[in-house]
Every structure is written in structure tokens, then in C-alpha cells.
Design a protein around this nucleic acid. Structure first.
Lengths: 206, 206
DNA sequence: GGGTACATGTAATCAGTTACATGATTTA
DNA sequence: TAAATCATGTAACTGATTACATGTACCC
């Protein structure tokens, strides 16, 4: 048996409902935008189109308000919970993907002026600083109900470290694109990983 | 004027051709799979469907073999080069995206057994170790023509550091999921970024 | 009571993926 | 010359995104 393999977005929806109890699409949207989007983002419209499909598969149940906004509230079924557990238990088959226009543009920046590279780097410092801040904020809220959330903060700590690394890297590029390229060129066939030159964690607060 | 905004894949194709001279789809595939896919991956079929569209826009020129495989070789035009330069010069509008099933599953793993989490972590150690290795290999080749490649290695160094961080993180989780979750729980509202406990760079070679 | 922001959706489009299929070249 | 692998593509599908549209609640 087993359901015909769901999309990742569908699994995310199931997980959120398994995790936080019955929710409306809007509540899901809120949580996902704040907490999950760091690692898997998608537009809110899918939160309205996917749950009905999951209902048809018997993985969710829908209750609808009679009055006012006629909100739909979705609840995970036993069968849905089993699907979630099975999915979590199997190691991922697809490789992790990064889609980072900043890194992509840097890669091809040999045809750019150094000044353009510097602008790029500065914009990325902003972007990653903001990401670090919003992730930290989301994690701070996860203070409540510590037993249930177990690994949320564990992954969050990785996220913070990763954003910190990005900020340090782009600062380095912004400071001097040419020197930075030069440093990377040394060593011939062996390339050293980037190491922040300053002690970590000087990302300014809110 | 200006072209009607291209997809990122189309920009990647233009960049590769601006970068490395005339290429067939298969040559593009080879380079992208080895070097670019770390930051922006996509299936090879697009390398056959997109270039004709770019030709229609006047950004590429196509030459076709008369004999044998009748390969199509694409060359960037002056207009294409201008588009590339303009694209590189403007800072990215879209936020970077991570799509990592490992982190996603960890996030929701409160309903899993610790043993399942450990399996997950071990699989991710493998995945990121392999990524670090293939990235290092690709960068080693970029030894040739250092002037032209300028920033490739610079971004590559970031990539290596990032994979190293991932490996260290997942090793930590694999060693003891519970302790790791416990450590993340401390501190109440403030969450500390993950720091590798061992000195970096003990990823085994080949 | 009028404006603004919040909330809830639908429909069309399209980029990206999957699945398939065949031709050319190399190797045993 | 058969098998295996490398190389080149096509077509159908579908998940995801964009654009739109409207209703509800709150605030001044």
C-alpha cells in the first residue's frame, strides 16, 4: 500500500499539522513563513490548494466554520500521522539544493568591474544579516513547549551558524574583492575553505 | 528596450557561454554539473530547450555540424554579452533559498525515535562529505587560466567552508541526538549558533 | 462610515522535471 | 560485430508561481 508519494510541500503541511494540531491555511502560512521558510519556502497559495488533495487521500480531515469567514480547519488523521512518521524515518533521497543568486553572480563576475562585485557583496551582507535576525527571532519564540519541539532549535543553531558564515564571507569580499580573489588563487590545485578573519558573532542586534 | 527578463537558467547558460566561449549543450552540461550545480542545479534537458529561445531573442547564435552528430554549437552575441553584464551588475532581488530535506526532517523529528534521527544524521554526513569532495575537485581544475576565472575560487572557498560546517553539525547530531537537542534548549530566548567542537577540516580525502 | 490592512481564495500560466527514445562512438 | 556507454534530443506532465479578486475585521 502506502500513498503514491507526495510532494515535499505536502509533507511539510502534514508535518505542521502533526506538530501543532489543527490549523487553518492562514495559521499554517504564519508558522511556515516565520520558521520553516528558512529551509523550505513556497508561496501561500499552495496552503489553500494542497490540503483538499490531502483530504481526498484520507490524510487530513476538514472542518468548516458555518459563520463569518467560513474558515477551513484541517486536522491530521491517524493515517496521515503514519505517513509523516514513515517519511521522517527514511533518509532523504534528493540532494540538498542551494539556489543563491549572490553566489551564482559572484562565480561569473570575472567580466564585472570590482565596484559591481563590491555592491553585490554589500547587498548580500544585508540579506544574510536580516535572515540571521529573523531566524533568531523565530527560535526565541520556540522557547515555549521545549519537550515537544526537541530538534527545532538544534537545526536552528545550524542555521544561525550558516548565516554567520555567509555574513563573514561577504564582508570579506566587500572589503576588498581583488585581494579576496587573489587569496583564493594561491595554493594551485588545493583550495582552502574560507575562514572568517574576525572572531565570529559580531552581527549587530535588531 | 532590454529583454523581457530571462529565467535564471537562461542567465546561467548565457554566462557559461560568455565565460568559456562557444559550446555545445553537452559541453555546457559537463561544466555545469561539475562546477555550477553546487549553487544552481537543473536537469540537462533544459540545455537543449533553452538555447533556441535565446537565439530567437538574438542573444545567441547557433552553428550546426553538417556531418555525424550534427552538434549545435552556441556562441554568445554582443547583445547577449550586454545582457549578461547588466544582470551581473544588479544585486539579486530574490532571496537565497535552501532546500534541504535533511534539515527539514530534523526540524520535525520530535515525533521520531532517536535512532531514526541518528540514521538521518549519518546519511547527511555522507552527503555533505561527498559534496565537499566534488567541489574541491572541481576547484582544483580551475587552476588553469587563473586571471579569467577570478572569483570562481573565491565562491568555492565559501562552499567548502559551508560543507565543512554541515559535516561538523551532522556529526554532532549523529554522535548524540538527545544531548544535542538538550544543548540547543539551553539559554531560553537566546539561541547560540552551532560551533564545531573539533578543529575544522578533518574531512578525509578521496 | 470610510479607509486600510488582514485574510482567503481561484485560475491561468509556465518553468522545471520525468520519462522516454534514438543515434553515434568506443571497447571487447 | 555486439555490447556498452556517451551524447542528443522530444514530448507530456505537473508542481509551483503569478496575477488577480474579493470578503472580513479593525481603526480613525
Amino acid at each position: 500500500m502506502s500513498t503514491p508519494a507526495l510532494s515535499t510541500v505536502q509533507y511539510v503541511i502534514l508535518c505542521c499539522l502533526a506538530w501543532r494540531g489543527p490549523q487553518t491555511p492562514y495559521q499554517l502560512k504564519d508558522y511556515i513563513a516565520r520558521v520553516v521558510s528558512w529551509v523550505w519556502d513556497f508561496p501561500h497559495t499552495q496552503l489553500y490548494t494542497e490540503p483538499p488533495k490531502l483530504c481526498a487521500l484520507g490524510l487530513l480531515r476538514e472542518d468548516r466554520e458555518e459563520q463569518g469567514r467560513r474558515r477551513r480547519t484541517y486536522t491530521i488523521t491517524e493515517e496521515g500521522l503514519a505517513v509523516v512518521r514513515a517519511w521522517l524515518a527514511e533518509p532523504p533521497t534528493k540532494a540538498p539544493q542551494i539556489r543563491d543568486l549572490g553566489l551564482l553572480k559572484l562565480h561569473f563576475s570575472a567580466v564585472s568591474e570590482p565596484e559591481a562585485v563590491r555592491r553585490l557583496a554589500r547587498s548580500q551582507v544585508e540579506v544574510h544579516t536580516a535572515r540571521a535576525r529573523s531566524l533568531a527571532a523565530a527560535l526565541a519564540e520556540s522557547d515555549a513547549d521545549p519537550a515537544h519541539r526537541r530538534y527545532v532549535r538544534s537545526g536552528g543553531r545550524y542555521g544561525l551558524a550558516s548565516e554567520e558564515l555567509s555574513v563573514a564571507f561577504w564582508r570579506d569580499v566587500a572589503a576588498d574583492p581583488e585581494r579576496c580573489a587573489e587569496a583564493a588563487r594561491r595554493g594551485g590545485a588545493t583550495v582552502e575553505p574560507f575562514r572568517p578573519s574576525h572572531p565570529a558573532s559580531d552581527i549587530p542586534d535588531g
